[in-house]
Design a protein around this nucleic acid. Structure first.
Length: 452
RNA sequence: GUGGGCAUAGCUCAGUUGGUUAGAGCGCAUGGUUGUGGUCCAUGAGGUCGCCGGUUCAAAUCCGGCUGUCCACCCCA
């Protein structure tokens, strides 16, 4: 008698998973996201989950702390040094992909990527170690049209709206404005200044001013002007005059203002004030050089950003002797979805995709049920044939608990008509397998056909 | 990586100033005869009270360590 030892079943923290009725909604979301991305001509790529470690760390920064390396449990001699690791985002794999297939791609290269990414962070609400990102990027040779800076956020907002998410804001800034402004003020530590200013919504103007003095070594008066810049927001192009009123001279600054104005002008005509010029937005990644984006759920202002992206001067510099700039935007799918699940905002779908359960009547040849199922399946329905000739009550209960909308009783004797029962209304009718159609009150079938 | 809270049944949680056999709701299983689910009723299964050690006649309860988890910071979708 061996003591049975059970391991407490638990998903690893930070690695979300859903019950079938939630997962089915997530799948519908992904289908919808893909559909709209493709409607704008973006193509799909699906590079591996792992890349060479040198590739992943090529973007610099200290993200390597958060990269999961892969190695075999039983490493052989000299083999314990990990050579590959799980990708940290979808942009670096894209860079490698574009560089590698440069000769086979048509530019501007517009691609979408719906994949998981992995980060070795401490999990928290909205922070996962494994999560889906839905990226769209445009990469071109030597120069990417500014029009894309305006189109991408419009695409993303359309996607979210089609998922029923209108309460989303898209904050947009331009790194050239920040850099030009700071340089115009004679600030030397621009990178640190950007990092601090990005905390505006978290620690407020006073906090930023103090931190600029303490951490970035900026004098109080100059710090104050940085805060003034960061306080500017507008849903139209009026931000530009307000920046110019601060009277800082810089060519780069002017360039940034023109670009941001262009983007805002375009977005104002295709969205309803969801896009906002927000000069406090900076974004952490230091490879952004122009437009930067950050999206938030309006109803959960303390929840971390759900959209992120920007323009980079050169995506593939570390792989190719060509300059390939790009602009991209990413939906934090898991971040959004998990929050809405937690808040009860996701209407669970059915527990299984079955439209019809065929009952197996006790005392009737099981071939009858099997053939009935096959017949209905050929008509395009998702059909389960109950796995044993158990009591009919038990089979009904199964259909009920799985949320299967229709039950079919195959004919008990040759020549008789089958009967169909609508589980929601309780209505039961005799009708041939070819003539039967769902009455419409069944939720599963409708949900599935609508999304298909 | 730094700092703080929490840990009792599958889930959500009770459990008095340490005291004998640790409870509830939900969920699950079976039954309430024959070929019809949901509601109701009855019965039942299920816990090393996270793990290890200490204090005590006695620990779910007090103390220490470990692990897990959640929150804040860092950073970020």
């Amino acid at each position: 008698m061996s003591a049975k030892k059970t391991i407490k079943p638990r998903a690893i923290s930070g690695f979300p998973e859903w019950l079938p009725e939630i997962r089915i909604v997530e799948q519908q979301w992904m289908n919808e996201i893909r559909r709209i991305f493709e409607s704008y001509g973006f193509c799909s790529i699906d590079p591996p989950s792992v890349e060479d470690i040198d590739v992943l760390t090529s973007k610099g920064g200290d993200t390597d702390k958060e990269i999961y390396a892969l190695r075999r449990l039983q490493a052989e001699d000299g083999g314990d040094e990990a050579r590959v690791a799980l990708h940290y985002d979808l942009t670096v794999p894209l860079a490698r992909y574009v560089a590698q297939h440069f000769n086979d791609l048509a530019f501007p290269f517009k691609r979408y990527q719906i994949q998981r990414a992995w980060r070795g962070e401490r999990p928290q609400e909205g922070r996962f170690r494994e999560f889906y990102q839905c990226d769209i990027d445009v990469v071109d040779v030597d120069n990417v049209a500014l029009d894309f800076d305006a189109e991408l956020p419009a695409v993303i907002l359309e996607v979210l709206a089609s998922l029923g998410l209108d309460r989303v804001s898209m904050h947009i800034n331009n790194r050239k404005i920040l850099q030009g402004f700071y340089e115009g003020l004679g600030i030397e530590n621009v990178v640190e200044t950007i990092r601090v200013v990005d905390k505006m919504d978290k620690i407020g103007p006073e906090g930023v001013a103090k931190m600029l003095v303490d951490d970035a070594g900026i004098d109080a008066a100059t710090a104050q002007r940085c805060v003034e810049l960061a306080s500017i927001r507008s849903t139209d192009t009026s931000f530009a005059e307000r920046v110019r009123a601060l009277d800082v001279k810089s060519e780069l600054l002017d360039e940034g203002l023109d670009e941001l104005t262009f983007v805002l002008e375009h977005l104002a005509s295709v969205t309803q004030e969801q896009a906002v010029a927000d000069l406090a937005i900076a974004r952490g990644f230091d490879y952004y050089t122009g437009t930067v984006y950050e999206g938030k759920l309006i109803d959960y202002p303390d929840y971390p950003s759900i959209l992120s992206g920007g323009r980079y001067d050169d995506l593939v510099g570390s792989f190719l002797r060509r300059r390939l700039p790009g602009v991209g935007l990413s939906i934090g799918l898991t971040r959004i979805f998990a929050k809405l699940v937690k808040e009860g905002q996701i209407q669970p779908g059915p527990k299984c995709p079955t439209d019809v359960l065929v009952v197996q009547l006790p005392g009737v040849d099981r071939a009858v049920a099997r053939d009935t199922g096959r017949h209905l399946r050929r008509r395009g329905f998702n059909v389960e044939v109950y796995h044993e000739a158990k009591k009919v009550g038990a089979q009904m209960k199964y259909a009920d608990r799985k949320g299967i909308p229709y039950v079919c009783f195959p004919p008990g004797e040759p020549g008789a008509l089958p009967e169909f029962k609508d589980m929601q209304s309780g209505e039961q009718t005799s009708v041939s397998l070819d003539a039967w159609s769902p009455s419409g009150s069944g939720g599963t079938f409708k949900a599935r056909t609508v999304s298909a």
